Computed example of a mutant assay.
Amino acid sequence: MLVFILNAGSSSLKYQLMNPISKEVLATGLCERIGIDGILKHEFGDNKLTLEVSMPTHKEAIELVLKTLIESEGKVINSIDDIDAIGHRAVHGGEEFASSVMVTPKVIETMKKLIPLAPLHNPANIMGMEICQELMPGKPNVAVFDTAFHQTMPDYAYMYALPYEQYTKHGIRKYGFHGTSHYFVSNEARGMLDKKHNTRIIVCHLGNGSSVSAVLNGKCIDTSMGLTPVQGLMMGTRAGDVGAGAISYMMSQEKLTIDQALDIMNKKSGILGISGKSSDLREVLQGMQDGDDRCRLAVEMVAYNIKKYVGAYVAALDGVDALCFTGGIGENSSLIREIVCAGLDGMGLIIDPTKNNKRSGKARDIATNSSAARIFVIPTNEEYVIANDTYKIVSGLEK
């Protein structure tokens, strides 16, 4: 089976063509600057292809991708008929979707009702589904939700201590994100532990967007992101946890509207806001090495925030069997892993400096032999989760 995996954003879209049974990736790529000028970056095998083509809308972008897969020098299949199904990343499923589902008119209608919870993401996700239905009629489409994995959280973990009516009337609660990554990594960790039952796993998905989850016996019981992705860890440009009083005071002092305050918290805060240099941790780490004190502060804040959540989730899980690092920062920054794990010996987490500093694109254990709990670095694979869920639903293996 070949699954076309689509992640449609507001002005971009990512895609892969994958066989979920063999895990073979035939092609992967990115369309950028949709509605502006248009750039397609297409990779297949060891080859790369970049095209500058006008993409007024997402429809032209998806048409170009399909044409590239079939006709151009980036060809990997003979026709659209070779594509068996389309799997879509869907950001917000609210409480309505606790698992991946076949895309139907009712599903799209429900997702439209959830747009207030994800105004930047859900409209683009829906658009991708509708365009694929138009361009590839009869092909099954499956929606895989970022929030679905976290729907197993107990009510005392996902509720905010606001008047209860804010939940019943408006659905204001913690939902969590990066669910496909947390699912994949925690499941891989269970395999590495060779222990499918009684597992207590903490997953740190660390990138430009970051979140931590506590996973008990394969089910999420808590996660750091909330109603929106801005809650939780300090991130590339997101503030993470900030007291409501600090926000209202900032708004008062700066004479800001709600939208202006949200723009600051989502796009001008985090690593960028503290360092004043970049949202890219690699540049900030270099700045710290060069003696920039604000870069040093940003790095230490990032690591401290992660460590606080790790400690909290060890308590929530009543112990820990494995701490996992994934995502661009989690997989590649040995220094962040080192700082996070420093002083966690009492929790049974002892990092091995030599193992930690070794580069590898594969899943590995970086704990000492004497560590009571394991510390894993596991490359995430969200696209495989989308492709595999699509395969199972289309094949009737998951009902």
Rank of each mutant, 00 (worst) to 15 (best):
S211K: 01
A161L: 09
N125Y: 10
K23D: 11
V385M: 12
N388C: 05
I375E: 01
S213I: 01
Y249S: 10
N122R: 05
K268D: 12
K59Y: 04
S186K: 07
K307W: 03
Y391R: 14
S252E: 15
V185F: 10
T180G: 06
S275M: 00
G319E: 11
I258Y: 09
K59A: 03
C220W: 06
L297F: 11
E96I: 00
Y160M: 04
E73D: 15
G9E: 08
A143H: 09
I221H: 12
D365P: 05
S54P: 06
N217V: 12
A244I: 13
K169R: 14
T68V: 11
Y249V: 06
R89G: 01
L117F: 14
G176N: 03
S210G: 01
V310D: 02
I77V: 14
L323P: 09
K362D: 12
T257Q: 07
M111N: 00
Y391D: 10
H182M: 02
R33I: 01
I34W: 07
L397M: 15
S100K: 06
Q166E: 13
V242D: 01
M129H: 07
P154N: 13
D146I: 05
E32H: 03
I274A: 00
T390R: 12
M234T: 13
M1Q: 13
N217Y: 11
H88P: 09
E331V: 07
E52V: 12
A312N: 11
P20G: 06
T110M: 12
F97N: 06
L66M: 13
G176E: 03
D293R: 14
N357C: 06
S334C: 07
L262H: 01
A118F: 04
H150L: 03
S211E: 00
I172V: 15
A61N: 07
T110W: 02
L49R: 15
G87M: 11
I351H: 02
A124P: 07
A387F: 12
